[in-house]
Structure formats: C-alpha cells, structure tokens
C-alpha cells in the first residue's frame, strides 16, 4: 500500500463516499444516482465490465473502497458519452469514470497491467519529458511493454509499416536520439509540477 493510500484510508475512515466526493473529479455527483440502470443498459461496453457505472456508484455508497479502486471497470470506459446523454439524473458519468480511474492510479491501487492504464502511463511519461510526444519512442515503448522478445516480435510485425512511413518522411529514425522538444520544456515541467501541487493541496494529498 502506498503512502498516499494509507493516508487516505486513515483520513476517511470508512466513509468512501465522502472520499470520492472530495477527491474524485465530479465525485460529488455519485450520491445523486437513483439506480435506474439506464447507464448500465446504454454502455456499449457494459457486458465487458466487471461492474457497470450503476454498480460502481452503489459500491461507492456501500463503502466498498478496495473493490472499486482495484477494479478495472472504469478503465474500460471509451468516452462514448452514451450514458451521460441518457442519465435521467444528469450525472457526468464518463467524467466520474475517468476521475475514478485517475484516483485509483494515484492511490496505486489500479490494476498494474490494465492495458488502458499502461498506454496512458507510457503516453504521459513520453509527453512530460520534452513537452511533445515522440512518436518513435512512444511506438517502441508500446512494442516493448510486454518484454524484450515480445517487443522484437512486435517490431518485426510492424516493419513494413515503419519503412513505408520513413519513405513518406513521416518517421525520422534519428528521433530516437532526443528528438524534437518544445521551445521551453523546462517551463512545461514547472507548469505540470505547479498544477500537481495545487491539486494535491486542494485534495489534501500528502506532498510527494
């Protein structure tokens, strides 16, 4: 259990609903759900989920903290917004799903190998380095996310696509050595650090 997580547990005791209201994006909407199940019936991924949005909200109200935060449910949301459009109580369900995913990640409870989480992490780490996404490094990181030999296999499979991109001057192999940066990459880093500081203060996280 991470420090952050221990601190949150201590702080909110068993009141998970309160924790969600304080710390999860749009979490104060969760209490307004009337359990009609329209979201569950509308979600194109409904069947693929461990728990539908309706259930997730009920679980939050029932104080099932670990079960919710460790679940891969909210990582499945594709942001189609079907549920938001249909919810008779106007809950911003999609936003809550992303908020919950993000929170579970911050608490370091989210499933480690959940693909959406992995890709999001790789994307983020790539982005914050220079303030721009380095597509070559991003693709390679994706190929090798499941280990070296799988990475080689993935790269071989994509070989002709890569060569084609190079021919069309859409891919520069020298990007592997540093690559483009934005004009003020240290400024970007500072900005992100500041944003994080503000968020931590607002949500009462222990400073990292």
């Amino acid at each position: 259990m991470s420090n952050q997580n221990q601190q949150a547990v201590a702080r909110y005791q068993n009141n998970f609903l309160k924790e969600v209201e304080d710390r999860v994006e749009d979490g104060d909407w969760v209490k307004m759900c009337m359990q009609c199940g329209v979201c569950a019936g509308s979600c194109p991924l409904g069947d693929a989920w461990e728990h539908t949005p309706q259930k997730i909200f009920m679980m939050i109200r029932a104080g099932k903290r670990e079960e919710v935060l460790k679940s891969d449910a909210m990582w499945m949301c594709t942001s189609c917004y079907n549920c938001i459009v249909r919810c008779p109580r106007k809950l911003p369900i999609t936003h809550i799903m992303h908020g919950l995913a993000n929170y579970a990640h911050r608490m370091n409870l989210a499933p480690q190998r959940q693909p959406t989480r992995v890709i999001a992490k790789i994307f983020w780490d790539n982005l914050v380095k220079t303030g721009r996404v380095n597509e070559l490094k991003f693709s390679l990181a994706m190929y090798f996310k499941d280990g070296f030999s799988q990475g080689i296999k993935n790269a071989m499979a994509m070989q002709s696509a890569g060569l084609g991109l190079m021919k069309a001057k859409r891919l520069n192999p020298f990007e592997i050595f540093g690559g483009h940066k934005c004009k003020d990459s240290s400024g970007i880093k500072k900005m992100i650090a500041k944003a994080r500081e503000i968020e931590d203060r607002k949500k009462g996280y222990t400073p990292l």
């Binding site: 609903l17 209490k31 307004m32 009337m34 359990q35 009920m58 109200r61 029932a62 109580r89």
Partner: peptide
Amino acid sequence: FYRSAQNKGVTFTK
C-alpha cells in the same frame, strides 16, 4: 423532494 434528500446526503439503498 427525493433529489433534495440525496443532496442532503440521505443514503438510498436498494
């Protein structure tokens, strides 16, 4: 009235 109670933090359990 129901919505107002939810806003006030009354828990509704099915």
